[in-house]
Nucleic acid binder design. Structure first.
Lengths: 334, 334
DNA sequence: CTGAAAGCGCTAACAA
DNA sequence: TTGTTAGCGCTTTCAG
């Protein structure tokens, strides 16, 4: 393995000091154009690639952003990775990925955060999940700039991008109630990108404001995995009936639709179903899902942009960024 | 922002030299137990987290693996991220993620590889895609240990994990031909995790070996995106008819099934469809997809394990690891 | 405009 | 068993 070419090699070959080479690669404008040219030419000729690790040590900046997310959120995160990757690349930040497993059993969140600390990432993006509060506490303790996706929060060096689950749920519920559909239920998985508590609150408030009694047990908890949620729902519909099913994620909605169809329940005639996120599940499903469109790619892009703003001490006019959502009417509602 | 505690602080507080602290955190067994205890206690008390960047500079090892993949493959890669993340975590490697966009237009592969070089990742994992050859060439040039997923190759410091697309295609085609289904077509998207050329070759050979003429234009190219491939196929079925449709990925298979159903083509009675990968699309789809199950999670895990073997100079008994696949019969075939 | 030199935080000989 | 010291490759004052 031939030795890597260093800044010293370049300096020597270009007959300047390493300080000058450093100035050139960092775009300092005090270098005489002729010298710059010579250095640049040498860099190219020697195929010199500055060692980011050394630079990181010298500047105590790694231009690296750590992204921490639970594996069960892949489906959601997937579409966000595009925004994260593109934006990171554009702004010249590396993205280092830390996954946590299903229940945080195998690798406690403490360990993951410890890795983040050790990696000296400049900032971190967190995703809403079961132990988001704990994560945020740890991050705060180490004072790492952070942005949280899917959970509304802001603090010193902490911003967030989120969808207002409460108002989504409120609006939908209100509308269904007005149509006379009062037997509404909410099917939710344990992990989600949107705040499930807020969603539930939205439903509750809509019932309260409409002076209609909230059905008992209107919340149905299912698995994150379709392979499990689908049979769960199939069994559930043996003994239950609803006018409307709201969900926290398209995947759950598809499980509902398929389980219902297997029971001879007509969707949307007998039962209406609404998904959430507008992922490919929604279009692939038959009938195609009525759902809430959330600009997931943008959420990722904004998260990264926001984080870099914190890192560069740019002014931030909105520390808690709500994402616009739209109701997409397809075939699982009337 | 309070200053980070360094190895010097620990050394001073524990009243030893920094070399001893270094020995303790690196598990050297020449340290006297009593001293070790004292150091350990101090580390804990001061909440010292060794700076990986400094360590990287000193050892010229970053314990970081770069994962490079095109965004269009994320659907496939998604399930692999689990394996990659878990295994990386277990083996104590950081995973740094580089995405390339759709057509490699915005960010030429050269730039991405350049970032990988600069990051000084110890190794890199690459995914089969349009310009995999170019990627491999670049990686070779810089002699970075690599493992390629989805494309069979091996070389000095390069290994691969793949599925034998050719034999999958061959076996399936042969079987359908024997059932008298000779009007077979292959619907493929431009990017794929399995080698599409090999797949096509498998079909061709099966036809040749069966002494049946291969239908002209048996290959149908569609978009990577369901939103586009579905209408494409809908139009395609206006003028085309097949006994059997083979696909390179479940998503395309779902598009085929949905487009067919819209045309009143009965699946599987009039047309049989086979997916590939056995992703959640296959189970969610109605009728559920007959597909080829590929252990995607394991592919990710094996890729990382293989790479660490190269990095640690462990013996590698198989440089090109074929993944086992299984034919999953569901409802889109007879 | 350019060079010399002092770190950044850690590892790894080499001494003791 | 422990300490001393010379780097790892780069940035950044401070002189010149």
């Amino acid at each position: 393995m031939k030795k890597k070419v260093t800044i010293y090699d370049v300096a020597e070959a270009a007959d300047v000091s390493l300080a000058t080479v450093s100035r050139v690669i960092n775009g300092s404008n005090v270098v005489k154009p002729a010298t710059r040219e010579r250095v640049l030419e040498t860099i190219k000729r020697l195929d010199f690639k500055p060692n980011q690790i050394a630079r990181g040590l010298a500047t105590s900046k790694t231009t690296t952003i750590a992204v921490v997310f639970p594996q069960s959120l892949f489906g959601h995160v997937k579409d966000m990775i595009g925004g994260i990757g593109d934006t990171g690349r554009t702004l010249d930040f590396n993205i280092i990925m830390y996954t946590t497993d299903e229940l945080g059993l195998g690798n406690p969140i403490e360990e993951v955060i410890e890795k983040v600390i050790k990696s000296r990432a400049d900032g971190v993006v967190l995703f809403n999940n079961n132990c988001i509060d704990k994560e945020i506490d740890l991050i705060k303790k180490y004072r790492i700039p952070a942005v949280v996706v899917g959970y509304k929060i802001s603090d010193e060096d902490i911003c967030s991008v989120y969808v207002d689950a409460k108002s989504i749920a409120y609006d939908m519920t209100k509308q269904f109630i007005e149509q006379g559909k009062k037997n509404i239920c909410f099917v939710r998985a344990t992990q989600n990108l949107v705040d499930l508590n807020d969603f539930a609150k939205g439903i509750e408030e809509a019932f309260k404001d409409s002076d209609v009694t909230l059905p008992e047990d209107y919340i149905v908890d299912v698995s994150n995995h379709y392979e499990e949620s689908y049979p769960q729902l199939k069994e559930y519909f043996d003994t239950h009936k609803h006018d409307v099913v709201l969900t926290g994620y398209d995947k759950e909605a598809v499980a509902v639709v398929n389980a219902a169809i297997d029971h001879g329940i007509n969707v949307p005639e007998d039962m209406q179903v609404v998904g959430m996120m507008d992922t490919s599940y929604a279009t692939i499903c038959r009938p195609p899902l009525t759902t809430i469109h959330v600009p997931v790619y943008d959420m990722g892009a904004i998260a990264i942009r926001l984080l870099t703003k914190i890192l560069n001490h740019e002014e931030i006019d909105e520390a808690e960024v709500p994402m616009h959502y739209t109701f997409i009417k397809r075939d699982t509602t009337k």
